[in-house]
Write a protein that binds this DNA or RNA. Structure first.
Lengths: 339, 339
DNA sequence: CGATGGCACTCGCGGGTCCTGAGTGCTAAT
DNA sequence: ATTAGCACTCAGGACCCGCGAGTGCCATCG
């Protein structure tokens, strides 16, 4: 009993099913793949594979369909990542390089990814708390309202309007701005707590109230995990795949529109693997996604993962291609941010 | 031949069809509405209405369905905007007031609108060119790279990194920042061209190159119509309405993901009406939206429209409710931005 | 002992037929 | 102008049937 061949059969089944979207039978298998054996033999193998839970038949007189477990084995051991074509790489590079802005980069990335994979794509904005600060700017709006603008190395800009108890003097803003930038620039949130605290003492008692407010605004902004933002594109690809998950499109779309769900998903997957992670069907904790698969990868300047991107589609998806695309876009994205 | 009653019949048909989603016949009409006449009479009226193109029958032995023309008459003359409940108004107000940021405001608005209307909602970011400037900030990144940050009164933040020909001296940045803000603050793009030009002459020849670059970066950023951004939410509501437009969900979703299409749509509708505008079915120029209706309204501080919001759904939608919701959200949005 | 050819069996699917009932349009009566 | 009565239409559901893809098992072969 050739264990080898059995795996080859599984691979063949997955590959066929992914393109035809129909249960595959023993006859068509031997026709389309050079397995060198007869349908009867394949049938025996299939019986074993079914026994072990890698494939299943929708009904008695139908061909076989891979189960989630089957897909899992496939992506883990049977599929080789297929490299993108030169043209594709070129397209990615130029398309992303034209971006003018962080918003633009993220926007372009998510569109690009959805086009490359023909799936729904999601991109998470670089996390504030894990990015280093580039600059903090203070703009007086009135005599007791202050606009605080925070710019990170990754290009993300965040702003808050502060309402102060007492009017602040003209001298304060420039001085605070200068000191703030000296202490904050280049540091991450985790390295920021103490220096910010010490900063307060450097000012006259009369001003400390204002300084404290600004400092805590900065800290709060960076800490707010709710401020994690996610964008999504290619929802129309989902309904194109409709026949795949019949009636399941809505739950999936709903899950996708729920930032919290997406966020948790991406976070969980970050723990799975530093590189590309794959979740198949019921492996997703969220019930709405039980018939969907997700491929995700992290990105970020100089090795540090600051956020993640992902593609989501029916379990019956082209894993090799999707993985390649996700990885490629993540890499280019990292490169852009580093530049 | 009571013209009155005929309109009442049309109204009844629309109202019934909107909730049942099934062709409505003469019998059920008299049952559900106190029309005071017999089905036979209604049938005569329906024949006339059909003659005039306000309703149609899907097939010979079925009830009637409103045509786009019928809906149009309905929204123009037959429906009264139903005011939101106090609870709803309260919910809108508090939900939007918690927003911390322009991004957050827009994000909350679009979610809110999609929930209120049970449709797909879109919100356009305040246009840069029509907003007044609040502040321009310059941050040196290296000795010849300059980060330009532009903040508008509506809270929108835009940034560009500038690559200069020659290194700029230390003195230049503070001076330029100061002058720039004096000339630019509070003005719109249209009022900005000349002052920016004059600004250049105020500097020493050696610096003029850099000043020119910054000035044109500011002008470009404000002018770029491509920088119009739109966010969308509630796509899952679309597929919930699936049976309405069978197989038409995909084109609609595709249209929605195409920023350009959406932008043109909103712009066109801005010309229709200053307040709430409605496009029904084939009135939409984009073919993919031939079976969809759009309700849109402008918003902006102090009467000035700086952008638009809208809700999109099947032609068979609750126009009264949708119009009320769109208008309400637009108003609250304006109020927030003004505050 | 694994591979194979043969064979009986299963059952989903597509197509055809029939029937029911909602809804219409017309006409004659009020 | 309204209405009751009536004949007519036709989409949709229920039912039935035959085809064919695909299976599992068994006896046979190298």
């Amino acid at each position: 009993m050739s264990d080898e061949r059995r795996l080859a059969v599984l691979r063949a089944i997955v590959e066929d099913y992914v393109v035809t979207q129909e249960p595959v039978g023993s006859r068509s298998l031997v026709e389309r793949h050079a397995l060198g054996v007869s349908p009867a033999t394949i049938r025996n193998d299939m019986a074993v594979l079914e026994e072990s839970g890698y494939i299943a038949q929708p009904h008695t007189s139908a061909g076989r369909v891979p189960t989630d477990k089957g897909y899992r084995l496939f992506v883990d051991r049977l599929s080789s990542v297929k490299p993108l074509s030169v043209a594709e790489r070129k397209a990615i590079a130029t398309f992303l390089e034209d971006a003018v802005d962080l918003d633009d980069v993220v926007d372009r990335s998510v569109r690009l990814l959805s086009q490359l994979t023909h799936q729904v794509a999601v991109v998470q904005y670089p996390s504030l708390s894990r990015s280093a600060l580039r600059h903090v700017e203070l703009v007086p709006v009135s005599d007791r309202r202050l606009l605080v603008v925070i710019i990170t190395e990754t290009g993300r800009v965040e702003q808050r309007v502060l309402e102060l108890e007492a009017p602040f003097g003209d001298h304060l803003v420039p001085e605070l701005r200068a000191r703030l930038n000296v202490t904050a620039a280049g540091r991450r949130l985790s390295q920021l707590a103490r220096p910010l605290g010490e900063l307060i003492d450097a000012f006259q008692p009369a001003d400390q109230e204002a300084v404290r407010a600004v400092a805590s605004a900065v800290a709060d902004t960076l800490a707010e995990s709710t401020e994690e933002r996610i964008v999504m594109a290619g929802a129309s690809n989902l309904v194109r795949a409709e026949p795949d998950f019949p009636g399941t499109v809505r739950p999936v779309l709903e899950a996708l529109e729920e930032q919290v769900v997406l966020l948790r998903l991406l976070t969980e997957m970050a723990e799975d693997s530093a590189d590309v992670a794959v979740r198949i069907g019921h492996e997703n904790t969220h019930v709405g996604l039980a018939e969907a698969s997700v491929v995700a990868a992290g990105y970020g300047a100089d090795g540090q993962t600051v956020a993640r991107i992902g593609a989501l589609g029916p379990t019956r998806m082209d894993y090799a291609g999707t993985i390649a695309a996700v990885r490629a876009v993540a890499r280019y994205l990292s490169r852009i941010l580093a530049g």
